[in-house]
Design a protein around this nucleic acid. Structure first.
Length: 273
DNA sequence: GCGAATGTTCGCTT
DNA sequence: CAAGCGAACATTCG
């Protein structure tokens, strides 16, 4: 459950089932996903805590406790959070189970185990990397001038700039391609070659596309639980991602695939310049 | 069997 | 020294 629209969907779906709940116990089936501190400290630190908020920053999720302590979660490629009754058997690859006082459990499942969780005390330095994030895509500070400033001295492909979490937080490989398609810019166009008009269209396309996909991802708690948190409703609405070799939905030109920074990128050579 | 997959970080080479 | 690669993490799927 990876990019900002999916992470925001998880947050919205689970939030009502987490707020005001108290943690009655924590099971760690695989300590590999705990980045810090030790599993014992995580269990001792979280047990008895009451959940005050469930927040998102870029692709990070954070459980904030009444005490000011907090648990930061990054799902990376295949991490997945669900809230299920204790009576429902856990799925394969469930690594962390956080029992709540209403009989439900917050479960962390991750096939590839690339995701990470960090528990931290109030006032303790956050080492998750979340504080190195750039601005949120929906922040009014995200405009053409902001992007232009970040791109001034860079010859990097514009797609790499979009994937840089320290500039704009939350964009990943799917939505960077979708944003560039919407903005009509080739993913390999160097940042320092972007025109004023490119920056304007890019600044508009970022929040527009992400908001569109958050809306398309909307799902009820029940449906989310049924699909084990793995329902990817965005797929039917993707214009370019995963469609290399297929015709462009706008002009019919065959979509091209290329590799940038080790990530596959698909674009329309006619619509994107 | 091989390559790729919604992400990030580290280490090595330009 | 910055930028830009590939590898690593680990598993599944086509």
């Amino acid at each position: 459950m990876p990019e900002l629209p999916e992470v925001e969907t998880v947050r919205r779906v689970l939030e009502p089932y987490l707020l005001k709940k108290t943690i009655t116990g924590v099971q760690i089936h695989n300590a590999q996903v705990i980045a810090a501190p030790s599993p014992e400290q995580c269990i001792a630190g979280m047990t008895g805590q009451s959940i005050a908020a469930f927040a998102r920053h870029g692709k990070f999720l954070r459980l904030l406790f009444e005490s000011g302590d907090y648990l930061t979660i990054h799902l990376r490629m295949t991490g997945c959070l669900t809230v299920q009754p204790q009576t429902v058997p856990t799925e394969k690859h469930t690594h962390i189970v956080i029992a709540l006082d209403d009989g439900n459990e917050l479960r962390y499942q991750d096939v590839r185990r690339l995701g990470k969780l960090w528990f931290a005390r109030h006032g303790e330095e956050d080492i998750s990397g979340a504080k190195e994030l750039g601005i949120e895509p929906f922040d009014s500070a995200l405009n053409a001038v902001f992007l232009q400033d970040k791109c001034r001295n860079s010859k990097k492909p514009v797609k790499s700039m979009l994937l840089d979490q320290s500039i704009v937080a939350g964009i990943g490989n799917i939505y960077s391609d979708e944003i560039l398609f919407a903005a009509g810019i080739r993913p390999d166009k160097p940042c320092n070659m972007l025109t004023d008009s490119d920056f304007e269209r890019l600044a508009a396309a970022i929040p527009e596309r992400l908001a569109f996909f958050i809306e398309k991802n909307a799902i009820s708690f029940e449906e989310y639980a049924l699909s084990k948190g793995k329902d990817y409703r965005n797929t039917p609405y993707l214009c370019v991602y995963g469609r290399g070799g297929e015709p462009c939905l706008v002009c019919g030109t065959t979509l091209q695939r290329l590799v940038l920074g080790g990530r596959s990128s698909v674009f329309c050579p006619h619509c994107q310049r």
